[in-house]
């Protein structure tokens, strides 16, 4: 499945990874129910957030795949970028369970558990795709994951600003990042509404 040239139909492989990406995005949004509720997201605004989440998942998969591909190239092992992207997308498949993050109290721990699970899959697939041994596959996966997180931290700010601007144009209100903002509204207990 990781090797469309061997598996035959590239379209079906791409379809699976695309489906995984969309399911992961839907599940991630479900897990962030608090953010959806605090912003009263419904209808068109939900579709907007779903689209932006799909794009962000695709970007992260692309970044991670690109970094891993580059590492492999540096080590003299050249694989197709499509193969790498498929592997990373498969590694992201535990994200399909991201909706469990909505659970109170344990949600953040479950999120870290899903991330660890994804990393284990990435580690295993990296070894298979590049044909390297287990320690090398671990180092490559770890380096690529850390580099991706760093890039997301750098690029995330401008991307968030673009998203927030589009949200404001679409809904006419600011996008609340968390319900903590309610605690900063003075006298909210006495307000109508």
């Amino acid at each position: 499945m990781l090797r469309p040239d061997l598996a035959g139909s590239g379209a079906s492989v791409g379809g699976v990874t695309t489906t995984i990406g969309i399911l992961v995005a839907i599940s991630m949004l479900a897990g962030r129910g608090a953010m959806l509720a605090i912003n009263r997201v419904r209808g068109l605004s939900y579709l907007f957030l779903l689209l932006t989440t799909v794009v962000s998942v695709a970007v992260v998969v692309g970044l991670l795949a690109g970094i891993l591909w580059s590492l492999g190239w540096a080590l003299g092992v050249v694989v197709g970028f499509g193969t790498m992207a498929n592997a990373v997308a498969l590694a992201a498949s535990p994200g399909v369970f991201a909706f469990v993050v909505i659970a109170p109290g344990v949600g953040p721990f479950l999120s870290r558990g899903l991330m660890a699970w994804s990393f284990l899959i990435l580690w295993s697939l990296t070894g298979q795709v590049f044909g390297v041994d287990v320690p090398m596959a671990f180092l490559m996966s770890l380096a690529a994951s850390v580099a991706t997180l760093a890039l997301v931290a750098v690029l995330g700010g401008p991307a968030s600003r673009v998203r927030n601007n589009l949200w404001r144009r679409l809904t006419g209100r600011e996008l609340r990042r968390s319900s903590r903002e309610l605690m900063d509204i003075e006298g909210i207990l006495e307000m109508e509404g």
């Binding site: 608090a34 605090i38 109170p104 109290g105 968390s178 319900s179 903590r180 903002e181 309610l182 605690m183």
Partner: peptide, 8 residues
Amino acid sequence: ADRRYGPM
């Protein structure tokens, strides 16, 4: 007690 839902 959850920071995400507690304020609401």
